[in-house]
């Protein structure tokens, strides 16, 4: 006989993404033990993450910074092939439709990088280029020390207000394609104000992959403040 006055309730009280968070914590420990700085790049598709990263990798190679990249996309390895042309170890993570990277994908591919000889202990910098998406990657910790939110000058100055979760969770905001800012009438001060509203005190770095503006500063920043606990 059922007793309608005593519903059976199981208390969980746990994070929805607890499993991912646990795996990310393991990764963070591994990264810290190896002394490698790790950044997670998040933006909408077309912001120019890959193009800026190509330029940054060329600078890193020239400065003898030891760097490797994991790049996520829903399909194709086009980005990995572009980035591998710079000569650094690159692995493509094809998510097959999943709209973000998860910590277990990063674990699998970090293991594969190490199996290929790119040991974390011997790296200065690991860049995780997330799937182009402003919403979903926000929820998934990858064990990174620095989350980079990118915004191109063609996207509109108020994007941080429309997607506050990403910008609020970032450690640095990077403006891309600033070489064409005038042509598209981009108001940099307005964009900086929008960032300040949703992410007070966050550094904002203006960059151009074409002219190289801000690339050395971004590399310095990624090497300087990554790998720490969040």
């Amino acid at each position: 006989m059922s007793n309608a006055t005593a519903p059976r309730i199981v208390e969980l009280r746990r994070g929805v993404l607890e499993k991912n968070d646990r795996r990310a914590a393991v990764l963070r420990g591994r990264f810290a033990a190896s002394g490698v700085r790790v950044s997670n790049w998040v933006s909408s598709p077309g912001t120019g993450k890959t193009t800026l990263l190509e330029r940054l990798l060329a600078d890193a190679v020239a400065r003898e910074v030891r760097v490797a990249v994991l790049v996520g996309d829903c399909a194709t390895d086009n980005d990995a092939r572009r980035l591998a042309a710079t000569g650094v170890p690159v692995r493509q993570i094809v998510t097959e439709g999943i709209c973000h990277l998860e910590a277990d994908m990063v674990t699998t591919h970090v293991d594969a990088l190490e199996a290929d000889g790119a040991l974390l202990d011997e790296l200065d910098l690991l860049v995780l280029e997330n799937v182009g998406n402003l919403v979903c990657p926000t929820s998934y910790d990858l064990g990174e020390g620095t989350r980079v939110a990118l915004l191109s000058v063609t996207e509109g100055e108020d994007k941080p207000l429309k997607y506050p979760q990403l910008f609020a969770s970032s450690d640095v905001v990077v403006l891309t394609k600033v070489d064409i800012a005038d042509a598209v009438e981009f108001d940099e001060a307005a964009a900086r104000r929008a960032v300040e509203i949703v992410a007070p005190g966050r550094p904002v770095l203006a960059t151009s992959a074409r002219t190289g503006t801000g690339v050395a500063e971004l590399l310095d920043l990624l090497l300087g403040c990554v790998g720490e606990a969040p």
Binding site: I9, V10, R13, G15
Partner: peptide
């Protein structure tokens, strides 16, 4: 402006109510 967040980051499963076996 203040970035001193006190709530809004939650994403938690609190509980599950089981179906009566009958």
């Amino acid at each position: 402006l203040s970035g001193d967040v006190r709530s809004g980051l939650e994403l938690e499963v609190r509980s599950a109510r089981l179906r009566d076996p009958g």
